[in-house]
């Protein structure tokens, strides 16, 4: 299960979502600009406030770190 915490204006969030679509990865998006609970959750999980924060099977990735995501999702 992939969770992605985003804001509507964040460029790297959009790039990350596109990357998921290209690689047929299903994900659940949490818009932290409108969902205060998700915002707290993201800050607690990642210890910081930058978006995107991506959670892959409990592992937290801060920013759109493509290489790290490819490794975690086993994409070649």
């Amino acid at each position: 299960m992939v969770n992605i915490y985003t804001t509507p204006t964040c460029v790297y969030c959009q790039m990350a979502k596109e990357f998921f679509k290209e690689n047929n990865v299903s994900y659940q998006e949490h818009d932290v600009s409108s969902d205060a609970k998700a915002r707290e959750e993201m800050i607690n999980k990642s210890g910081q406030m930058g978006v995107p924060v991506i959670e892959v099977e409990g592992e937290i990735v801060i920013g759109f770190d493509k290489e790290k995501l490819m490794e975690l999702l086993d994409i070649k």
Binding site: T7, T9, S33, A36, R39, M49, G50, I62
Partner: peptide
């Protein structure tokens, strides 16, 4: 940095509701 300090309002403004 990213704990309140940022250089990009476009990216991060919505986090400061």
């Amino acid at each position: 940095y990213n704990k309140g300090v940022t250089y990009c309002a476009t990216c991060d403004a919505p986090l400061f509701g």
